[in-house]
Amino acid sequence: MPKLIKNDQISADNWLLVEGSEENQTIPEGDVIVPLTLFLAQQETLLASSSNTGVWLDSSESPELIADQLQNIDMIAINFPAFTDGRGFSYAQILRGRMNFTGELRAFGDFGIDQMFFLKRCGFDSYLLPDDKDPAGAIAALSSFTDTYQTAQDQPVPAFRRSI
């Protein structure tokens, strides 16, 4: 089972990730993360339920597509179909930086220890780490560097504006 890392530790995962692209499939009970198509098709049902609503975006699905509904979404998960597919980094920056999304932002799919630091900097705060990756290494990698040159979600001020 993939392990969830949140708040710099392995955490219990209360969310159920729903897969499949059928627009009219039945959504399970509880806190669910549904694919974008399903969310758009069954938005009203989802929002009427007392459970939390999460949406997952594939790497080809821009957060622009849910820009208007962000206030109704409790968490967004972004899929990395391949760790070399870096679109999710920009999506996270846009969601946090421009759209001011404050809910949980989760990375899942194909990534590992060596992407953790960048993911965190771009605004992710939970990581569904693939099964074959070492969670201790991944947690340690969140602080690979003490400081950085440029701004990102973890550091709104570039090094040159701070006296360091």
């Binding site: 760790f83 070399t84 597919d85 870096g86 980094f89 920009s90 920056q93 992407q115 630091f117 960048f118 993911l119 900097r121 771009c122 560097f145 950085t148 040159y149 440029q150 990102a152």
Partner: peptide, 8 residues
Amino acid sequence: TLHPEFAY
């Protein structure tokens, strides 16, 4: 240098 958004 190590821009987090543009490494991939």
